[in-house]
Computed example of a mutant assay.
Amino acid sequence: MPETAAHLLSLDFPDDFTPGARSAVRTCLRIQPDEKITLITDRVTERIAASIARQLQDLGCRWNGFVLEDLAPRPLTDMPAAVLEDMETSDVSIFAVQVQQNELRSRMQMTDIVNRRHMRHAHMVNITAEIMCDGMRADYDKVDRLSQQVLERVRRARRIRATTAAGTDITSDMNPDYKWFKTSGIISSEKWGNLPGGECFTSPGEVNGTFVVDGVVGDWLCARYGLLAATPLAIHIEQNRIVRCSSSNQELERDFWAYTHTDENSDRVGEFAIGTNIGVHKVIGNILQDEKFPGIHIAFGNPYGEHTGAPWRSGTHIDVVGLGFNIWLQYATGETDQIMREGRFLISA
């Protein structure tokens, strides 16, 4: 057995991790005994990875494990070659890592292989013990049923309007040439997904209005600023671009503005998504789980064009999450369909 795999299997971990690890391996990824898996982790996350490794071992599949700090200094400039080479012969990959600033390039190198080879890939970025005992215990078959109902509706929508009591009021005109995807936690070769899962997303045609972030912001800013209920960030959007933003936390405002002005498309709305994980009942200050919280989240930067069909690109991607949404879909017929009121779906799972 390779040294890293043996190391992970030797680690103790809380019994509370086991249901979430089993859900990841057996329910979400549907891993089969005859498949090969690449498991990627880091020192901070290795006990969570150990719980996943135990499930892989019990299943009897072939797998290789990698701890990033054993291969390259952090933050990563590039994904280590050993990881990428192993992925070239795997059916499934699992990435359970605490990300560091400016590591997006290395993750994109990994997902480029996933996309090219149509691998099933679980993206467990910034996974924590809390998430293993919370969002990873959701009933993903139920989340999938709700997500499918949302998907069928939004694919027909020509316009989506969303409001919140905190001041969000945005309208998104949808581009019929861009594809919607469901990443409900049940991961297929069509599109890799985050775990915990639970969202339907696309790239919008054009978003206008104000989005008030009273939940969380993504990437490394999430760990720095946490929950934003006391210091919300108001983002004003015109023709899909940020025109200004404001917060009583001026450091947050400056960091967010700098992040979303890294390249020519960093300030452009690249993702428009509806969180569908009804097993998640509150935001916790971790974007991996919080973007699945029922409601709207959008992201500025990379539009995942290889999936959505959006023809532009960015080297950054940052999600923003709001709370307590009202959501209306408008169809080409002129019919309007409200699917959420004050944060609660009006669709049965």
Rank of each mutant, 00 (worst) to 15 (best):
V283P: 03
A229Q: 12
G309A: 09
T202F: 14
P14E: 10
Q148N: 13
R62Y: 08
Y331M: 11
D290L: 08
F211V: 01
G334R: 02
W192S: 03
I347G: 05
R116Q: 11
H236N: 13
L59E: 07
I298A: 11
T183Q: 03
V67W: 01
E3K: 14
L228R: 04
L252E: 07
N175W: 02
D112I: 00
A258L: 14
Q149P: 03
S10L: 10
I113R: 09
T276Q: 12
C222Q: 00
K142D: 13
Q109S: 06
A310L: 13
P311H: 12
V280T: 12
E3R: 12
R54K: 13
T38D: 06
S90D: 05
W220Y: 07
E103Q: 09
K191A: 14
D255A: 14
L8Y: 04
R74L: 05
D78M: 03
L329F: 13
A162M: 13
G198V: 10
K179I: 01
L68M: 06
G309F: 08
P14W: 06
A5C: 04
S188Q: 05
D15M: 12
A273K: 05
L59F: 07
L288G: 09
Q330N: 10
Y331F: 15
Q338G: 08
P19N: 09
G20V: 00
I113L: 15
